Simulated scan of single mutants.
Amino acid sequence: MVTGYEHARHVLRDPRFRLPGPPPDSEWSENGSHAGFLQNMLLASEGVQHTRLRRFLGQLFTPRAVRARTARIEAAMTALLNATQGRPVVDGVADISARLPVSVIGDLVGIPKEDRDEVSELCRTISKGGGVASGQPPGHDVDTALTHVDQLGQLVRRWMGSPSQLIPDSVLTLAVETMDTPDALSEMEVVANVFSLYIAGHDTSRNMLSGLLLRLATHPRLLTDLTAGTVDVPAEVDRLLLSEAPLTFTVRVAREGCEIAGQHVRRGDRIRVMLGAANHELVTHGREANHAGVSFGEGRHVCLGARLARTEGRVLLEAAGRRWSDLRLRADPKWTPHFLHRGLESLPLEITWR
């Protein structure tokens, strides 16, 4: 387990450490019924495969692409607030922070609006049975996950079979446009990365947005300053990410024997890089940080959607400054018990609307 900030950065950047693959005797392994699904995710791929997928998907995450998408994120945020307008009490998670990423990632992937909630549930179930972070999950979770991968594949084939109905600047449209070219993704790669983007873009963004709402509710001056336009909003988003990393850790496997901070690591050892702890060390040691620490990872696997996530956070804070004159906790927030994600399960808020 690596908890120090500099050591965390070192492991994440060092090519001697790779992402873990699926258990060799699982259905996700090379000889399993769904071989290649996990390995074809950008989140879990390595080497040439990772470079190829990152180049393909990266077209949708450039500064220009994110700027072009910002107006749609703002519109989605406005629609959520309009739906709760006038209600004195809302659940910040259920009503806002869990819903905005579904809209944003659905738009990015190109999923029809009527299918987005179903896909969200499918991906959550697949994640539970995939064992990417937790090792070997229970057999019934694996069986259910395999069935849901097949269902997701059916949906992807249906969507790609009607290209005229797809969102123009989306993963599915890009996949259709590059068919029969050297850049084409296989069907398995498309399905795997629809799942990958949903999991990476939904849970972490939900946790970040929930954290921002909690910060607004417990720091009254912040809302006042947002309204006055005196807040460095991007810096405020990074400040939250530094103190509450949405993902608590990531895992790497040693390709060869080496040392970390004087400790011997053997080939094949699994290393948990504790992202939240690394960030906290940076803060508690009094080092100045005008960034998000290792909240988005680092090195070749740094989060491709970091710019998009920051935009969601900025849009939320700016909308709050325009629409709310007061925000406070109605009851104690409830934290999710998940060991990988640091986030809220519920956040009862009392709002005074403008």
Score class of each variant (00 low, 15 high):
13 R>M: 10
209 L>Y: 03
154 Q>N: 13
112 P>Q: 11
33 S>D: 12
50 H>Y: 12
197 L>W: 09
281 E>D: 10
207 N>G: 00
300 R>A: 15
67 R>E: 06
270 R>P: 07
73 I>H: 01
348 P>D: 07
86 G>C: 07
136 Q>M: 10
241 L>M: 11
323 R>L: 14
57 L>F: 11
109 V>L: 10
28 W>D: 04
185 L>M: 15
319 A>M: 07
254 A>M: 09
352 T>M: 08
288 E>T: 15
285 H>D: 13
132 V>A: 03
160 M>T: 08
349 L>T: 03
112 P>T: 12
44 A>W: 00
102 V>W: 01
57 L>R: 10
13 R>D: 11
316 L>A: 03
226 L>C: 09
68 A>W: 02
267 R>L: 14
38 L>A: 08
338 H>V: 11
61 F>E: 03
201 G>N: 05
195 F>N: 02
183 D>A: 12
151 Q>C: 14
310 R>T: 10
72 R>C: 11
101 P>Y: 03
237 V>Y: 01
117 D>L: 14
57 L>W: 07
345 E>D: 13
169 D>T: 15
5 Y>N: 02
56 F>L: 14
123 C>I: 03
178 T>I: 11
276 G>E: 00
345 E>C: 05
331 A>R: 13
262 G>S: 10
73 I>K: 00
315 V>N: 01
132 V>F: 01
34 H>F: 07
353 W>H: 11
304 L>I: 04
76 A>T: 10
116 R>P: 09
116 R>T: 13
259 E>S: 14
286 G>L: 09
55 R>T: 14
1 M>T: 15
143 D>Y: 03
100 L>N: 01
199 I>V: 15
327 L>H: 04
30 E>N: 06
31 N>A: 06
352 T>Q: 12
143 D>S: 11
21 G>P: 05
18 R>Q: 13
70 T>R: 12
227 T>Y: 08
2 V>I: 15
347 L>R: 04
205 S>R: 02
12 L>K: 09
345 E>Y: 06
36 G>I: 12
238 D>P: 05
142 V>R: 00
293 G>S: 03
39 Q>I: 00
12 L>Y: 10
325 S>T: 15
319 A>Q: 12
332 D>Y: 05
234 P>E: 04
219 H>T: 15
326 D>W: 08
155 L>H: 15
46 E>W: 06
281 E>T: 06
135 G>C: 02
334 K>N: 10
49 Q>V: 09
298 E>T: 09
314 R>P: 01
347 L>C: 07
320 A>Q: 04
61 F>H: 03
